[in-house]
């Protein structure tokens, strides 16, 4: 059993979008959850793009550059590393990233950032 004081039960695996993102509500907060099926990896980041403070990252396209998994904001295509949250388009801003784990068909997101 997963301890729900530290982990948020976000959704079932089949509710997540393969090779894309969904947005998860955690109280006042919005978290973008990505199921990178090609790499068989899960990532979670803040949903807000720091560029223009838009709640948009979950609607962005994911992909990789060299081997770094990334998401591109749908608004102005700034890209962010899904691993570290670092902005890959050369801007001085980063996004928060959260741990993700799967337990019994449920996707859990860590309540505090990595």
């Amino acid at each position: 059993m997963t301890d729900t004081s530290n982990w948020l039960a976000a959704c079932r695996v089949e509710d997540a979008v393969e090779n894309g993102g969904v947005c998860v509500k955690n109280g006042e907060e919005q978290i973008a959850l990505f199921y990178f099926k090609r790499r068989n990896e899960w990532f979670a980041t803040q949903n807000e793009c720091p560029h223009r403070k838009q709640m948009a990252l979950s609607r962005g396209m994911i992909g990789s550059t060299t081997d770094e998994p990334k998401v591109a904001c749908p608004f102005h295509k700034k890209t962010f590393s899904l691993h570290t949250g670092e902005c890959l388009s050369g801007d001085e801003c980063a996004i928060k990233t959260y741990p993700v784990k799967i337990d019994n068909g449920i996707v859990y997101i860590g309540k505090s950032p990595k």
Partner: peptide, 10 residues
Amino acid sequence: KNDGCEVCKP
């Protein structure tokens, strides 16, 4: 190769 990106996908 690899995972694609916001250029090749659309």
